[in-house]
Amino acid sequence: MKAIVCKAWGLPDTLAVEELPDPVAAPGHVVLDVQAAGVNFPDVLIIQGKYQYKPELPFTPGNEVAGVVRAVGDGVTAFKPGDKVIAFSAHGAFAQQLAVPVQALMPMPPGMDFDTAAAITLTYGTSHHAVVDRAALKAGETMLVLGAAGGVGLAAIEIGKALGARVIAAASTDEKLAVCKEHGADELINYGTQDLREAIKALTGGKGPDVVYDPVGGDYAEAAFRSIAWRGRYLVVGFANGEIPKLPLNLALLKGASLVGVFWGEYAKREPKANLAGMMQLLGWMAEGKIRPHISARYALAETPQALNDMAARKVTGKVVIQPQR
Rank of each mutant, 00 (worst) to 15 (best):
V131M: 11
A135Q: 09
M143T: 00
G125L: 10
M143N: 01
P107I: 10
Q103H: 09
T116E: 13
H128A: 09
M112Q: 14
A136L: 00
Q96I: 10
Q103Y: 04
A135P: 14
H128F: 15
A104N: 15
A118Q: 04
G140Y: 11
Q97D: 00
D113C: 07
G125D: 09
A104P: 06
A117T: 11
L98E: 08
T142W: 08
P101Q: 07
L105P: 09
T126Q: 08
H129Y: 15
D133C: 04
A130Q: 09
L105H: 06
T126G: 11
V100F: 06
E141T: 11
L105Y: 11
S127G: 05
A139R: 02
G140R: 15
V131I: 12
A95M: 03
P110S: 12
P107N: 04
V100C: 13
A139S: 14
A136T: 03
D113L: 03
M143W: 01
V132C: 12
D113W: 02
H129F: 14
Q97I: 00
H128P: 02
I120C: 02
V132K: 12
L105V: 11
L105C: 08
R134N: 05
L122V: 15
M112R: 12
A119N: 12
H129K: 02
T121N: 13
G111R: 05
P109R: 12
D133P: 00
A135Y: 05
F114M: 15
L98N: 07
A99I: 01
D133F: 00
A139W: 00
A130M: 07
E141L: 01
D115A: 10
V100I: 05
G111P: 14
Q96E: 15
P110Q: 09
A117V: 05
G111A: 07
Q97T: 02
D133S: 12
V132E: 05
G140V: 06
D133M: 02
A130T: 00
H128K: 02
D115C: 08
V102P: 01
T126S: 14
A95L: 02
P107F: 11
P107A: 13
A95V: 04
V132F: 02
A130F: 13
T126I: 05
R134I: 05
T121P: 04
D115R: 08
M106W: 03
D133Q: 10
V132Q: 11
Q103K: 14
L98F: 13
A104T: 00
D133R: 10
G111K: 11
F114T: 00
L122R: 02
Y124P: 14
Q103L: 06
